[in-house]
Design a protein around this nucleic acid. Structure first.
Lengths: 315, 315
DNA sequence: CGACATATGTAGAGAGGTTTTCAGATTTAG
DNA sequence: CTAAATCTGAAAACCTCTCTACATATGTCG
């Protein structure tokens, strides 16, 4: 049921009438384009009548020609999104592009640089710290980067208990230091224009024996001196400001590594959280009335191919 | 006349009405798949009526929607027959890279897709909204994306007064609606797993006459229906979660566009803020007293000299 | 050779898609 | 603020496509 149309057409157990065989041959001769027009067009090319085409696709198990075509279209989309194809479509970047697009291209370069700058091993160490810490996991960040800390906190809460996002570091937040000890982990996000309060906080936490995981730029925050693991990102771009996108990607990469590496003992925890959230209807999964009312054929099959929804999303 | 549809859609001399711009955006955001269904489907996704779609393709020089679609199909065929794609059959899919690095590469693809999905013009519109709004600028975001909202708020505060980051949308935050009116702008970050409270908030703000700038993914949050400008990013990656890195980059690209485009009337404001911050010693600069504003070339484009520290950084 | 079964085409009904028409809404110019 | 121009969507007309019903052809077996 899930195989590609091409496989269905060449399946051995298929009993084809002479006319149907001609249609299949046309279909395969320039696959899948010839199936993307109307049924009548295809019939004419095969030298048969359109009802014959309809009968064939029904014999193949589809509910009708539109359903068949939708499947074909979905396959085209899958191929169109292949990484190789994306490379081909990649434009030279920067030619006629405006400032915004040039900026995005520039971010792409920083992202590449980031990928090459940090060995895979470092991600593994970060994951180990995050998941195997027995005590609490505290997170701090600078004025801009604290948003990333919050995102990471959001993910971590799905994986383990004891996650504390310290948010903005106001003076009274330093009180939290009394609770931080040898069994705890402090995750610090500190990118250039290193904030003195963040550095001070991290130093004091380190003095109290806490382990430190640092996300910073390639010039390394002062925190790197006493951090156990440091992940650096390339953040400079063609702009008076720096970009945080590679930093975000790097944080997410840690999560991706965790997901790939662990056998996902945390899965049941995620599912529990999902259930709670569903009960509270915090997210609306299917936009009512927007993409819908899906046009349906008489068979009840949606006419347009679904556009590959992800099992889990962020917002 | 022989240019690709994508180029026609992004051609500079093209005068697009607001509704038409939304269609173009949808087309580009999932190119070329979204143009392969029916005109009605496309219209629905863009939140416009089908005649508007027809008018657009005629304005582009086609004889009608079927003609437009035929051209699109021809392009698909061309790409499908590309030599690169032929090699794909034997693609092992799993590189020698580890999970984290593969993830970063995947983010790179989404970033490229994002760059190509949104015309430069849209960034200009976003900048205009952000800078020329007379009233207040409010910002909201979802559970994860609110970090991006906070980052944007950080930038905006350097450019203009009246920036209000609404933070987490708790029930009492809805009280803020009474202050939102016709002269104000609401910036919404809403990525898939669209949050019902965010959507509801935006809808009510729109009802009160506020203009709306939306950052979302290519499947478009329901907010897109009544947003004045929508910027969509590609956020899906090879991971059970989505990535927000392209979303961050896109937000920053808006800032980059603003910096490049405007004559930077906001410069004095930035300098004032710099002075205040220096006085409070919030950041520890590696080089004290090196607070110069961004250097700019004769063309008015800001130019960052290599290897000099940024005049303004993110942390 | 004749009767039946299967295969195929023709024609038309019905559904869905596109385009035209027109009126309301919005923006722009004066 | 008013008037003109433009933009937009609702509705309907028109067209195209699909699929059903029926008729015809082709082959098969007694």
């Amino acid at each position: 049921m899930n195989s590609k149309v091409k496989d269905m057409l060449t399946a051995p157990g298929l009993a084809l009438t002479p006319s149907e065989a001609r249609i299949v041959q046309v279909l395969l001769s320039d696959y899948p384009m010839s199936g993307l027009g109307t049924a009548t067009t295809l019939a004419r090319r095969a030298g048969v009548s359109d009802p014959t085409v309809g009968r064939l696709v029904i014999k193949l198990g589809f509910d009708g020609y539109p359903a068949f075509q939708a499947r074909l279209l979905a396959e085209v989309e899958a191929r169109l999104h292949s990484p190789l194809l994306m490379m081909e479509a990649k434009r030279p970047a920067g030619d006629g592009d405006g400032a915004a697009q040039a900026y995005l291209a520039s971010v792409g370069h920083s992202l590449d640089a980031t990928r090459q700058a940090v060995p895979e091993q470092a991600y593994g160490q970060a994951v180990r710290l995050l998941l195997e810490t027995k005590g609490q996991v505290y997170l701090v960040g600078g004025r801009f980067s604290r948003g990333i800390a919050a995102m990471l906190a959001g993910y971590l809460q799905q994986f383990r208990p004891g996650v504390v996002d310290l948010g903005i570091l106001s003076a009274d937040r330093f009180d939290a230091l009394v609770d931080i000890g040898r069994r705890d982990l402090l995750v610090v996000f500190d990118y250039r224009r290193y904030q003195s309060d963040v550095v001070a906080f991290a130093r004091q936490a380190a003095d109290r024996g806490a382990r430190i995981l640092l996300f910073t730029d390639v010039w390394l925050s002062p925190v790197a001196e006493f951090a156990e693991v440091t992940l650096s990102a390339r953040i400079e771009v063609d702009s008076p400001y720096d970009t945080l996108a590679p930093a975000v990607a790097q944080m997410e990469a840690v999560i991706a590594h965790a997901v790939a590496e662990t056998d996902f003992a945390a899965r049941d925890r995620i599912e529990r959280i999902e259930q709670i959230r569903a009960a509270q209807k915090v997210t609306l999964d299917d936009e009512p009335g927007r993409n819908a009312p899906p046009r349906r054929g008489p068979d009840g099959v949606s006419r347009r191919p679904k556009l590959t929804p992800n099992p889990e999303g962020t917002s």
